[in-house]
Design a protein around this nucleic acid. Structure first.
Length: 260
DNA sequence: CCACATGTTCATTT
DNA sequence: AAAATGAACATGTG
């Protein structure tokens, strides 16, 4: 699930469950997910601490501890957070127990998720070289960035160094809503189209958050509920499936125009 | 057994 | 330098 809308949901979940509570124990169940921090160090910096706030940037969740460290989470393909007292979840990679006996689990079946610990989140962002967050970027910046690119529009939307937050599913949805064929070239889109993508990008991401990031339960006018091999375009006609940049892509050849 | 899956990174080629 | 491609990572499902 973890594109921008999921991570925004995780952030709200984290804020409503895990702030301002002392961390009583730290269990690292899968050390492979730690990047540039040892198990001992992570435990040492988290124990006895409290989280004071969190921030989302693209697909990353920055949790801020009282001691000025940041625990940074990336959810890979299958990661999520779960707060519970008794019943856990099945693929817990990191488990924190708070003083009230509730636990916060970072669960991630496929282990593509990652965890960092740093005092300098700005340097982390610099190293990652992420583009502006997809919901924060203003139109002028969006236009300036996109008009300097020559590649295909879909891989560009998914390129985190260009804009941070959009993944494979929502890229398909944004292009569908904008009536743009995913093989279109970024530099062939006119000003009108750029404006449309920008606004549809915001609409799709906000709507996805609104719907709790359950892409398949979006209203029927969206592509995602129909994004399966038998699915049909909401406006009629068959959907086409192809690989673009190594990722499965659904689109409607009839309603999405190719700019090349 | 095979193909595929909401992501990122690296190597290779164009 | 940018862009395209394919593979790798780990693990589950159909």
């Amino acid at each position: 699930m973890p594109e921008l809308p999921s991570v925004e949901i995780f952030k709200r979940y984290f804020d409503s469950t895990s702030l301002n509570q002392e961390i009583e124990s730290v269990e690292i169940k899968s050390p492979e997910i730690l990047v540039d921090v040892s198990e001992a160090d992570l435990e040492d910096k988290l124990l006895g601490q409290v989280f004071v706030e969190s921030n989302r940037y693209g697909k990353y969740l920055f949790t801020h501890l009282f001691n000025d460290y940041f625990l940074i989470l990336h959810f890979g393909m299958t990661g999520y957070l779960k707060y519970f007292k008794n019943e856990g979840s099945s693929h817990i990679r990191l488990l924190l127990t708070f003083k009230n006996d509730y636990k916060l689990a970072f669960d991630d079946m496929r282990k593509f998720g990652k965890v960092w610990l740093t005092k300098q989140p700005d340097i982390f962002l610099q190293d990652k070289n992420l583009g502006p967050d997809a919901l924060e970027i203003d139109y002028q910046t969006f236009k300036n960035l996109i008009t300097r690119r020559k590649g295909l529009i879909k891989p560009l939307l998914m390129n985190q160094n260009f804009i941070a937050g959009i993944g494979n599913l929502y890229a398909d949805e944004i292009l569908y809503q904008s009536n743009i064929h995913p093989l279109s070239k970024a530099d062939k889109l006119d000003k009108e189209k750029l404006k449309e993508i920008y606004h549809k990008m915001r609409m799709v991401l906000n709507e996805a958050i609104e719907y709790q990031d359950k892409p398949y339960s979006l209203p029927p006018s969206f592509l995602l509920p129909h994004r399966h091999p038998k699915g049909e375009c909401p406006q009629g006609g068959a959907l086409e499936i192809m690989k673009i940049a190594g990722r499965t892509t659904y689109f409607c050849p009839e309603h999405q125009q190719l700019y090349k």
